[in-house]
Write a protein that binds this DNA or RNA. Structure first.
Lengths: 123, 123
DNA sequence: GAACTGTTTCTACAAGTGTAGAATATAAAT
DNA sequence: ATTTATATTCTACACTTGTAGAAACAGTTC
């Protein structure tokens, strides 16, 4: 089952820290911070959905992700490409370069990236 | 307000047709098609959210999008990039080329795209 | 004009979400 | 041991979503 919007938000913090206690996570929210019970609820639901787990550390729990951010995101992205671009990554790519306000420098950077990726595959 | 999952689905069909009556939209669904009242409900909600509008044509309505697919998607994408890549399109790009199963041909195509975009900007 | 057919609105309901108070547990501090 | 601070669970409630039946309408057909 998918993460909801606000669960995803929290998930970002967990990914960033690798491991974190609830209070640390709460810290990470910008003002106005949610009630701690709100975060607790989210953590519980996320655990139920299988996206995180925890290790009991004395009085409290240290939470950590059970899914990798890249994997999660790449599934996400593939879904989008399927939905919006009829499964064509290159159509997506052209959209991306045109519509995402890339600066000239970033476009050049992208050139390098593609270049390197092509190199990498030759071997 | 954002479109929900199944509203987005329907929105795709509307974008594809540019203009369509409910029965035409219903046609476009794969089996098992939803009840026509389901589609009617979605149309109503989408109209309330401001994503579509209609023109009364005799007995029924011809619906059309009030938001452009590219705009909608590009907002979507920018949101994602912000959320997952700290606002760095190039980090996103490198992720994209590495993780999206692009074939070699597609990578080359992407090279061309970037090349052309750079050209385009020179002028 | 009575019956039929397709459209739209109303109503409904279960599941999921955002949010958090109340209650409880539990360790730390005095 | 009593207070205090914090973490976790329970409970709650309003809102959104997916889905569709029932009802009301509006042409179309016999």
């Amino acid at each position: 089952m998918k993460l909801s919007k606000s669960e995803e938000q929290l998930m970002q913090y967990i990914w960033k820290r690798k491991k974190a206690f609830m209070n640390e996570l709460l810290e990470m929210y910008p003002e106005p911070k949610p009630a701690n019970t709100t975060v607790a609820t989210l953590l519980k639901r996320m655990k139920d959905k299988g996206y995180i787990d925890y290790e009991q550390m004395g009085r409290s729990r240290q939470y950590y992700p059970t899914v990798n951010k890249s994997d999660y995101f790449s599934r996400h992205l593939k879904g989008l490409i399927r939905k919006y671009f009829d499964d064509s990554p290159s159509t997506f790519a052209s959209f991306f370069t045109r519509e995402t306000d890339l600066t000239e420098d970033q476009l050049k950077e992208l050139q390098d990236i593609v270049e390197q990726e092509l190199e990498r595959r030759k071997k």
